[in-house]
Structures are given as structure tokens and as C-alpha cells.
């Protein structure tokens, strides 16, 4: 199937006090309808800026450029803001970690939902209201018709996330970008929201770009995974392959450093990744992970870092040869 979203060699640069921050450094991926791609990485790896770059919602001073950035055949690179605004919220929608950033606290929930549809479609207010009620019920808000008259603060955190999802779905988008949608929620509510997201995606055949720092969420939600580090995708592939045989030392480190029942013995040291993320201000050569990597060698400082194939569509950027399955690969 043709890709709905295609990204090649995407860069995001931000001017900062000490020079230029290269926040996203030449990443590429494709997303098919009905599939879930998870962008995973730690804070500052560029995953959220990637999402904002796709939606053309970057801060004004940030610069975006790409060799390819297309959505359903439309080249987003040169699209005027007026036409981008027509796509956004209609065929491509986004939900955020904090629902209150996208919900207007002074407007009734129903008005906001109706507006989301009528901004893009010529429908009657009554029809829009009916759709809002149906969607609120679909996302699990009981007594939806009665709650349309309420304000966002009258909903709990989990319910606000449901509201935001309903609002994102008003125009039946083809692409949903979800940036850490459950990070602020308790674990039991998180599971409920993720289940809902997966169900809705299946029903509507949505392409879902899910951005998270949580490898547990990635494992349970993703068809495809892209692991980001310091603005680059260092490993990508089908979720099953990446989790069964992670190849990049950073991916291996991430998986090894979380306590996991049955794999880590309580009270024993965890396999921490030493050091901190490098500064991306200024130019950078070679592998950005090498200062923290226990298997670094002189070749790691050379450009370009080779992209290797582990199996099929599973690839990674590292000088090391593919290792067989098994996370406990010797350092």
C-alpha cells in the first residue's frame, strides 16, 4: 500500500544563544494507513519537534527543511499556511500530553467540538452536534449529550484526554499524531486511553504516529518503531524485530536499564547508560552516542555512520555488525 506520510532527510534547526541547535538531523520514515509508528527516545532527542515539523507548528524561529515531506501525495514543504491550516485538524490531527493546551478553558466542550468540524465542513450545527455526541460516547464519556454544555475543567485528566481524542476525530482524519498522550496519566487510566486509541485506530483505519519515551507503550502499540537519539533515528524496524534483537547499543541500553520483572533481579544494579546526551549546538561528526557507548571505537568518529540491515526492514546506524537475537548481548 502507498504510504500516507513520507518523510526524507528532515532537519529542524533552532537558533540558540551559542549557535544553531540541530534538533532533528536528517531523519526519514514512511507511514501507511492503518499502521502505528512509534517514535521513541528520551527528552531532547527531537521526537516532539519532528511531530511539530510535520504539522507545520514549529516555533516561528525554527527552520525546517526536508528532501521529501508528503502527506497523501501533497508536498507539505511548499504548502502555503492557508492550505496547511485547511489540512490540519481535518485530514491530519494531533493530540498532546496536556489536554488543556488544546482545549479552550472558557468555551463549552460542545461548542469546541462542533467548531472543530464546522471549520472544515459545511454541515449544520445540529448535524455537528450529533456527531459530537456520537464521538463522545465512542471515546467513553457517559451521558455525552448532557456533558456538551460543560467546561473542560469539569472533566478529569483521563476524560480530557478522551475529549481531545474526540475532537481530533471530528473530521475523520487520515493521520493522527499523538505526542506523549498518556504521560501525565495514572497507569490504570493510561491503559484505558491506549486501548481506546488502538480500537479507534483499527475502526477508522487511521495512520497513527505515536511519540513516547516509554518502551512499554511502544512494545504494546507499535507496528513499526523508530528509536531516536540526539536528533537522529538510530534504529528502526518492525516492533517485534527491534524488541527481539535490538542492534544499536543505545536501543540495547534503553531496554536493559528499565527494571523488568523476570529479567532484572530486585535490588541488583541496573545496566545504566553512563553519561549524558551531547549538546547538539554547532556541527557534529560521527555517531552522537559514542561518548556514552561501551563499545565505541575510533571509527565511530567518522562520517557518515553506516546504516546496516539486521534483517528485512530492520536497520540501524552503527559501525558494529548485526548481533543475533537476545538482549543480553555482551558489551
Amino acid at each position: 500500500m502507498a504510504a500516507l506520510l513520507e518523510v526524507e532527510d528532515l532537519h529542524v534547526r533552532l537558533p540558540v544563544a551559542g549557535g544553531t541547535l540541530h534538533a532533528v538531523r536528517g531523519i526519514g520514515f514512511a507511514l501507511q494507513p492503518g499502521r502505528t509508528l512509534c517514535l521513541v527516545g528520551e527528552s531532547g532527542c527531537g521526537k516532539s519537534l519532528t511531530a511539530l515539523a510535520l504539522m507545520a507548528l514549529l516555533p516561528r524561529r525554527a527552520a525546517r527543511d526536508a528532501a521529501r515531506l508528503s502527506f497523501a501525495g501533497t508536498d507539505l514543504r511548499s504548502l502555503p499556511e492557508r492550505r496547511m491550516a485547511a489540512l490540519r485538524g481535518d485530514r491530519m490531527a494531533m493530540i498532546f500530553q496536556d489536554p488543556m493546551t488544546s482545549l479552550n478553558p472558557t468555551m463549552r466542550v460542545g461548542t469546541q467540538l462542533v467548531e472543530a468540524l464546522r471549520r472544515h465542513r459545511r454541515v449544520s450545527a445540529a448535524a455537528a452536534r450529533d456527531r459530537a455526541v456520537a464521538l463522545l460516547e465512542r471515546v467513553g464519556i457517559a451521558g455525552a449529550a448532557a456533558r456538551l454544555g460543560q467546561y473542560p475543567h469539569q472533566f478529569s485528566g483521563g476524560q480530557r484526554q478522551r475529549l481531545m481524542l474526540a475532537m481530533a476525530l471530528m473530521c475523520e482524519p487520515q493521520l493522527l499524531v499523538a505526542d506523549e498522550p498518556t504521560t501525565a496519566l495514572d497507569v490504570t487510566i493510561q491503559a484505558q486511553i491506549l486501548r481506546l486509541l488502538a480500537e479507534v485506530q483499527r475502526e477508522l483505519g487511521l495512520a497513527l504516529l505515536l511519540i513516547t519515551h516509554d518502551l512499554g507503550i511502544v512494545a504494546r502499540m507499535a507496528d513499526e518503531v523508530a528509536v531516536m537519539y540526539a536528533g537522529e533515528i538510530v534504529e528502526r524496524g518492525p516492533a517485534a524485530a527491534v524488541f527481539a534483537a535490538p542492534q544499536h547499543p543505545y536501543t540495547q541500553g534503553l531496554l536493559n536499564c528499565i527494571p523488568a520483572p523476570g529479567r532484572t533481579l530486585p535490588g541488583t544494579p541496573l545496566a545504566a547508560i553512563a553519561g549524558v546526551v551531547p549538546s547538539l549546538v554547532g556541527d557534529w561528526r560521527g555517531c552522537a552516542f559514542r561518548a556514552r557507548c561501551s563499545r565505541a571505537r575510533p571509527a565511530c568518529a567518522d562520517d557518515p555512520v553506516p546504516t546496516r540491515t539486521a534483517a528485512g526492514r530492520h536497520s540501524y546506524r552503527c559501525v558494529l555488525s548485526p548481533a543475533p537475537a537476545g538482549r543480553e548481548a555482551a558489551p
Binding site: 497507569v187 493510561q190 491503559a191 488502538a198 512499554g216 512494545a219 504494546r220 507499535a222 516492533a239
Partner: peptide, 13 residues
């Protein structure tokens, strides 16, 4: 509700 990094197990209910 704890999501362990085990692919293919889906989201628990």
C-alpha cells in the same frame, strides 16, 4: 496496567 516492553501482548484491560 503495567506495560512491560513485550511486543504483541496488546494493552491489558
Amino acid at each position: 496496567s503495567v506495560l512491560t516492553p513485550e511486543p504483541g501482548r496488546g494493552i491489558p484491560d
